[in-house]
Amino acid sequence: MQILSLVDDQTVITASGVCRGWRDAIYFGLARLSLSWCSKSMNNLVLSLVPKFVKLQTLILRQDKPQLEDNAVETIAKCCHELQILDLSKSFKLTDHSLYELALGCRDLTKLNISGCSAFSDNALAYLASFCRKLKVLNLCGCVRAASDTALQAIGQYCNQLQSLNLGWCDNVGDVGVTTLAYGCPDLRIVDLCGCVRITDDSVIALATRCPHLRSLGLYYCKNITDRAMYSLAHSKVNNRMWGSVKGGNDEDGLRTLNISQCTALTPSAVQAVCDSFPSLHTCSGRHSLIMSGCLNLTSVHCACAVHAHRAFTTFPHPAH
């Protein structure tokens, strides 16, 4: 199996047709399979292959053009009970039936990517959350119907181990959902709310106060965010440092990535306060982790190393001057 872990997935499938010994070793030993290379008949391939690979833990079914249908996901749910990582991104043809089946069949899921699955409803997602309680990474980018406050409340209630959530362009998401999420999932580290135009400062304040391990926050195009949210983030560092000293946290904890592009209501002083609170946030080139594109009034905001570099440059002017 170690040898087969070094070859591509097509070769693995080929190898399963070599002899009985190899076939059985692959069928009962293969833990990871990707069919993303399949450009035409992924659905048929899933239907014929997945029932044989009973020990699968990771299944990548990313598509460029939609191929997967509910019957394929149903097969996955019925056969792969040990599945932990599932990628169904861009499966536009899938309906709620798929989520209901996954909820019943794959309860050990820790990572689920359903980005671009626009047909899913919030009820189906809430149902999935109530069964798959071990979820740590959930990508709902573009799931406009599925990602609503109702669904987020269910996720906050049941998926308490959640660490990463992508809600990109889910414009039905509001403060109620995000706040419930922050209260229910204290281990959140990565939250992407880009394009969630309905959220306000309340969501950011809830995340800042309730999620001490928050490392990355995406607020691109969240035009309702004001300085109040920024000061809350800056202040959370102080609270978390006090909490961290008890738990043995290090100074590198805290925000490492913050995207506030197009958040035009923010002022330089508030953003500078955040930048000063978190040394890992950089505005300097090469280490760009505080992203402020489209905010012309924030050009004066700089990270500590950029300030030092500027000082050094002014202290030792160029000999030509």
Binding site: I13, G17, R20, R23, N44, L45, L47, S48, K52
Partner: peptide, 13 residues
């Protein structure tokens, strides 16, 4: 492996 078993991965393609 029988002919059918060899073709199994492809039967739906």
């Amino acid at each position: 492996l029988t002919e059918e078993e060899k073709l199994e991965p492809l039967k739906n393609t």
